[in-house]
Amino acid sequence: MTAQRQRLRLLLIEDSSDDEELLLQELGTSGYDVSHTLVMTREELSRALEAGPWDAIISDYRLPGFTGLEAFSLVQQRGLDIPFLLVSGTIGEDTAVAAMKAGVHDFLLKDRLGRLGPALARELREAVVRAERRKMQEQLLLSDRLAALGMLAAGVAHEINNPLSSLLVHLDLALNPPEERQLHPEEAQVVRSAFECAVHIRDIVRDIKIFARPDSEQFGPTELHRVLDSVLRMAWHQVIHKARLVKDYQGSATVHGSEARLAQIFLNLVINAAQAIPEGQRDQQEIRVVTRPEVPDSIRVEIHDTGPGIPPELHERIFEPFFTTKPVGVGTGLGLSICRRIATEMGGHIGLKSQPGQGSLFWVLLRSAQGSS
């Protein structure tokens, strides 16, 4: 029985058709079913990296206009963790040492390609291990964040709810006294304002309590607009000085998910939108939250902002763990990767449309509760 061949999406950086044929032949002998793209210049490499994904990259050392180490540097600049093997006909010891110090996963001589298959297999396994390690780190950080936030929310609710309930009762009594003790109109207005403020505090506490729900909360029918309203109240202080906030809810929207997880996604997206907008000119800036039904059986949520926009080459990278465009010390680079993971767990999707100078639109596609049974 013939062993199944392992499929390999290979990016090959090579300027010799003879060497290209030898490398592909060796990979075929090693059991790989290779689909590859050949590039020879820095510009072709940049376009190919954008067009990925790739399972592995094999590069010659000497190339037209640049070197294999410079090619590896381009890969690193994009934050890609792809097995990168350097192959050369004449690579000296100093060059080999420099390559390994730079982080190249392995180097081989073209007259000893018998080691290519085993070396690539090893690096593919190591890449899987690294990816799993990053995933575990992300999940641990997510769990720690949710646990800390849950403890904070539970503590706030416990400390505030009892005195707040008493305050509301007394203010209500003050607003509705016996007829012989009617308040002066000015006094009644003061008490009414205090009562409205207390009600607002109660709503905020209820919003925060969403995050106190256990992480094991089961997914089920969830009223999307109620979650979004809670998120916008929590994010209000981040938005109010930056931009006008516009809500455009179309129809009713009950989705498959959980309040805590959905709130985490949208709070992250709204705060990111606010942080992207520069200070000043508040009246000319806008954050718009849109919901609308989408066929079949889905609800689409869009967070629009009028910030500076995001270059196309970063549209996927911003969802990678630990990648951030924010200044050092601002954010961990985990927010959007966690949002994508949560959306996927709920059977949804998240993505981005943006161009420099034209703002950004983050969209989340969620399963309608009516269509998820």
Results as ranks from 00 to 15, higher is better:
G333D: 07
G333L: 14
G333P: 13
L334D: 11
L334T: 06
L334S: 07
L334N: 12
L334K: 15
G335N: 08
G335A: 13
L336K: 05
L336H: 05
S337Y: 08
S337E: 03
S337F: 10
I338S: 13
I338C: 04
I338E: 04
I338T: 15
I338D: 04
C339G: 04
C339L: 09
C339W: 10
C339K: 08
C339V: 14
R340T: 13
R340F: 13
R340P: 12
R341Q: 15
R341Y: 05
R341D: 11
R341E: 14
I342R: 07
I342H: 10
I342M: 08
I342S: 11
A343T: 09
A343W: 12
T344D: 15
T344L: 12
T344P: 00
T344K: 15
T344R: 15
T344Y: 14
T344I: 09
E345F: 13
E345L: 09
M346L: 08
M346T: 00
M346H: 00
M346F: 06
M346R: 01
G348C: 06
G348W: 03
G348M: 09
G348R: 01
H349D: 13
H349T: 03
I350M: 12
I350R: 04
I350G: 03
I350C: 08
G351C: 02
G351H: 02
L352C: 01
L352T: 00
L352M: 02
K353Y: 07
K353C: 09
K353I: 06
S354P: 07
S354K: 10
Q355I: 00
Q355T: 01
Q355P: 00
P356C: 02
P356H: 09
P356L: 15
P356N: 09
P356A: 06
G357W: 06
Q358W: 02
Q358Y: 03
G359Q: 10
G359A: 11
G359T: 07
G359C: 14
G359E: 07
G359D: 11
S360G: 02
S360A: 12
S360Q: 04
S360E: 01
L361I: 14
L361W: 09
L361V: 15
L361N: 09
L361E: 07
L361S: 05
F362R: 02
W363Q: 06
W363T: 02
W363I: 01
V364W: 12
V364F: 02
V364L: 11
V364G: 06
V364A: 13
L365I: 09
L365H: 05
L365E: 15
L365F: 10
L365W: 04
L365P: 04
L366K: 08
L366Q: 05
L366D: 09
R367G: 04
R367L: 12
S368A: 10
A369V: 04
A369G: 07
A369L: 08
Q370G: 14
Q370R: 11
Q370V: 03
